[in-house]
Nucleic acid binder design. Structure first.
Length: 422
RNA sequence: GGAGAGGUGACCGAGCGGCUAAGGAGCGCGCCUGGAAAGCGCGUAGGGUGUAACAGCCUCGCGGGUUCAAUUCCCGUCCUCUCCUCCA
């Protein structure tokens, strides 16, 4: 969300930035009009209110002196009516203004590649070599069913499409991933582990930008007006919502494993096979709250944290910088990390690391006291570090043997009771 | 789920229709001191509006209502605590 003052002062800059996404002005022109109108009414209301306050304070004095206040009361009644009328108008304008503002995406950072969609993203680097198989490699969905690791049919029966049961040693492997990822990020003290709720309220969902625009992709508990979180980004970023953090508490590095729930509205028919795109998946999420000056460096640092994990698992991957047309709603700059999937014969997204600048912080009223003692908005970042489901699929595919066994990556063996294959 | 109590300033805490949020803690500056503690004085929230500066407006959990006027009265709602009930 944008600062109301910036809408006025840097309007053209914001408009130009947002237009880089290639989807028009997102209602900004209308928003500017509403902002003007708001100020017009506000000035009037403030003047009238001042008059009202000043005059109504005379009443106790009148009473004391035994003067008849009825004339003054009459005047104040009229004043009160005018104020409440104007106030109502003001509130309508403000509501409409705010509602529209919530739908305006962040401005893509000036240095990111211009483009319309995925095809214009820029590959930054690759690590590792895709394995050359001396046998016909199976996709994880075939392998998973053959080995009795994945049960798609019962997932559909018990819940519906895009829900899957994971069984036996494979379930243990996923659990190993969860523990390994959390240990990786926390044991050196860099990130603090948080056990997080799996649902969040409307305010939190709005704070990180899932609402109002993407409501159709969220699972909603109507009775409580709670939402199943689509990522721990929601609960972790909102953790310090409406707080003013002292400088010495920064930077905040937190991480959490949660289940994530997405209705995947609009992606019907995509990735229907396997566990790449599920309605529920486990993920370790990384969140940073940092001072504005350092946020782009912090983004690079976060990417390298995720890369280190993939390297330790010996999974070939590449880093891609998203172009202006593909970068997410709340993000100013995003790197996707894509891991090699033999079944797709390509790299597929496994992590996404973004710098949101103060976009989420404004929505969350997430602030800190800077060196000058002034209150300012923080910058927020998050990245997947990393999802267990997709990672499991990647390991099944990349580490399979001709006999259909799965080689356990060395770093995971301590979490698997020493097993080197399953 | 039932009954009760409460949510006030970066913290504690009074106010319970108008005198425009008492008092304290902490922090900052100054005085005092050889130095410090104590003591004394002053200052210490956020937001938006207009400005050269001052100023004025909003915020006493949140949302409505009554009133010329609401922190104060009424209704709703959320959260916290205590007791009961239920329960992994």
């Amino acid at each position: 969300m944008y600062d109301i003052k910036r809408i006025r002062r840097d309007f053209d800059e914001i408009l130009r930035g947002v237009e880089k996404r290639g989807q028009g002005d997102f209602g900004l022109l209308e928003i500017r009009e509403l902002e003007k109108k708001r100020r017009e009414i506000l000035v009037q209301v403030e003047q009238l209110r001042n008059e009202q306050k000043t005059k109504s304070r005379l009443i106790p004095a009148y009473k004391k002196e035994g003067k008849d206040p009825s004339e003054l009361l009459e005047e104040l009644r009229g004043l009160s009516e005018r104020i409440s009328g104007l106030d109502k108008e003001l509130r309508q304008v403000e509501e409409s203004f705010e509602e529209k503002l919530y739908y305006v995406p962040n401005t893509p950072h000036k240095d990111i590649p211009l483009g319309k969609g995925e095809e214009d993203n820029k590959e930054i680097r690759r690590w590792g070599q895709p394995r050359v198989f001396e046998f016909e490699a199976s996709p994880h969905w075939d392998l998973g069913v053959e080995r009795n690791f994945l049960d798609f049919e019962r997932g559909s029966k018990v819940v519906g499409s895009r829900f899957t049961f994971i069984k036996g040693a494979c379930a243990r492997l996923e659990r190993a991933l969860m523990n390994y990822f959390l240990d990786f990020h926390t044991l050196d003290g860099k990130y603090t582990e948080i056990g997080s709720p799996g649902v969040a309220n409307r305010l939190s969902m709005t704070g990180t930008g899932q609402l109002p625009k993407f409501i159709e992709d969220m699972y909603h508990c109507a009775e409580d007006d709670y939402f199943l979180i689509p990522t721990a980004e929601v609960t972790l970023t909102n953790f310090h919502r409406e707080e003013i953090l002292p400088l010495e508490d920064l930077p905040v590095y937190i991480t959490s494993f949660t289940q994530c729930y997405r209705r995947e509205a609009g992606s019907a028919g995509r990735d229907t096979k396997g566990i790449i795109r599920q309605h529920q998946f486990g993920k370790v999420e990384l969140v940073k709250l940092v001072e504005p000056e350092s946020s782009f460096d912090e983004l690079e640092d976060m990417v390298s944290d995720v890369e280190a994990i993939l390297q330790s698992l010996e999974l070939p991957y590449r880093v891609v910088e998203l172009c202006s047309g593909d970068v997410g709603f709340s993000s100013a700059k995003t790197y996707d990390l894509e891991v090699w999937f033999p079944s797709y014969d390509t790299y597929r997204e496994i992590s996404s690391c973004s710098n949101f600048l103060d976009f989420q912080a404004r929505r969350c009223m997430l602030r800190y006291r800077n060196k000058e003692g002034k209150v300012d908005f923080l910058h927020t970042l998050n990245g997947s570090g990393i999802p267990t489901g997709r990672c499991l699929a990647a390991i099944l595919e990349n580490n399979q043997t001709a006999e259909g066994k799965i080689i356990i990556p060395k770093v995971l063996r301590p979490y698997m009771g020493g097993l080197d294959e399953i």
